[in-house]
C-alpha cells in the first residue's frame, strides 16, 4: 500500500499539487487527470521518488515500481526485445521477445526502435513497464499516440498484467476507464 499524506509541491511559487492525500491499494486502478501543466507527471515522479514534496509525506512501504515515463525513453539503436533485456535484465532474448507480440506487430519486432512509429514505441514502453511483477505501476499517459483500438488493447493488457497490484495512470479525461477506483483531478480538487 502506498500512501500520500497532505502532499504539496510547488513550481515557481504556484502549487501544482496542494495538500493531496491518496492511498493506492493493491489491485486498485487509479487515475490522475487535469489540464496540461496541472501536475500529473509531477505526482507520478513524487511517488517514484524522483522529486521531493515541499511538504507532506509519501509512504511507499518498500514498494517496487513498474514505470512508464511521459516520454518513451527507449534505447534508440536497439530493437524492442533488446530494450526489454537491457532495461529489465532479462537474460534470454527469446524470453524477452515472447513478451512483445501481444501489443507489437510481428514486422516491428526486429527493427531498431528508432525506426518505429510513435504508437509502436509507446507500446514497447508499456510492455517494459508491465512485464515484471511489481507491487505498483505508475504509467504516464500510456495511451498517448494510440488509436482507440490499440488503446483498448493496451488497457486490457494493463489490467491483466497488474492483477493484484496498484496502478496509477496519468490520463486525459476522455481516456479514463469507467471502473477506476478513484480519479484524482488536479486543479479541480
Amino acid at each position: 500500500m502506498i500512501e500520500l499524506r497532505s502532499v504539496t509541491k510547488t513550481y515557481g511559487g504556484a502549487a501544482c499539487i496542494h495538500k493531496l492525500s491518496l492511498t493506492l491499494e493493491p489491485g486498485g486502478l487509479y487515475c490522475v487527470t487535469g489540464p496540461s501543466g496541472s501536475g500529473k507527471t509531477t505526482l507520478l515522479r513524487l511517488i517514484m521518488g524522483l522529486e521531493k514534496p515541499d511538504s507532506g509525506e509519501i509512504i511507499t512501504n518498500g514498494a517496487d515500481f513498474g514505470v512508464m515515463f511521459q516520454e518513451d525513453r527507449l534505447l534508440e539503436g536497439f530493437d524492442a526485445a533488446d530494450n526489454l533485456r537491457l532495461a529489465l535484465g532479462i537474460k534470454s532474448r527469446p524470453a524477452a521477445r515472447r513478451e512483445l507480440p501481444e501489443l507489437l506487430e510481428e514486422d516491428a519486432l526486429d527493427k531498431p526502435v528508432g525506426k518505429l512509429s510513435g504508437g509502436q514505441r509507446r507500446r514497447i514502453a508499456l510492455v517494459r513497464a508491465m512485464v515484471l511483477r511489481r507491487s505498483c505501476y505508475l504509467l504516464d499517459e500510456p495511451f498517448a499516440g494510440l488509436d482507440a483500438e490499440s488503446a483498448a488493447r493496451a488497457l486490457e493488457y494493463i489490467r491483466r498484467m497488474a492483477r493484484g497490484s496498484a496502478v496509477l495512470m496519468a490520463l486525459h479525461e476522455k481516456d479514463i476507464p469507467a471502473d477506476v477506483r478513484r480519479v484524482i483531478r488536479l486543479n479541480n480538487q
Binding site: M48, L50, F65, R73, A87
Partner: peptide
Amino acid sequence: KLLEMAAMFR
C-alpha cells in the same frame, strides 16, 4: 532522461 530510466529500472 535515459539515465533516470536506468535508475528506475535498476
